[in-house]
Amino acid sequence: MSTATVDQASGSLGKKGQSGGRAAKNTIAKVVMWAAFLIALVPLVWIMWTVISKGGRLLLDVGWWTESQRGVGRREQAGGAAHAIQGTLIQAFVTALIAVPIGVFTAVYLVEYGRGRLAKAVSFMVDILTGIPSIVAALFVYALWVTTFGLDRIPFAVCLALVLLMIPVVVRSTEEMLKLVPNELREASYALGVPKWKTIMKIVLPTAFSGIVTGILLGLARVMGETAPLIILGPYFKSLSTNLFDGLMGTLPTMINEGRDNMAVPATNERVWAAACTLILLVLILNLLGRLVGRFSKVKN
């Protein structure tokens, strides 16, 4: 039915040839687009398949989530990853606790107050921070913490290095979200005799809230997978530990790294893939959480 109408229409315009050329271009563009999409999908599916097929089975075991690797030999099929999951979550949480206020306030300064040289300098610094490789951040903290101050390598030092990596992500994403808040809302608030700081607290930040949270969670997801600072500042530890200021703390990335040398041993091999699978799962959950927050946003349409 519809084809007939189209034919009629192009016929009546007397430009059938041109229309045919356009249709061909459309088809080519479509094919290229789908091909690009499928090619991009290949590595993703491949990784997911490898990780899940090699380590997914362990995740179904309750012990994986409740037990540590304490006293478990590398050939033994026993224990779990509770110590590493716990360590990763604790370090991510503490990192966020430090990085989020600094990042959000910096973004508020840049968008709402920043004028002139200081703002430009701050923005430039954030750009530089964005480009810092994680190993450089780790070595910087090592140089400061261990070499200069002579302190021990403790899990908190890892958090400090992760903070350096998380701040620029939070600043940039928050900045974008604040810029999206229409200026009219600020003006409406000023016109009601509301001071600037209150306008930011009660109008601007709530309007941008869901976007800011999404940005924070994405930054957190990135930080959770970081490995370089952990290798340099927070060596692997097989037992449960919650103390950030003393001793060592196991994490998922270091657990994967630790098992790397023994991939020929089936028990270790499976543990390594399972740890990778767990890490992907945690990041996935964070992303879903970010979307969920977006849905419960206070901006009503």
Partner: peptide
Amino acid sequence: GMVFQRPNPFPT
């Protein structure tokens, strides 16, 4: 007080 060109109720 002031009323603007485009209606701008607070979306939150």
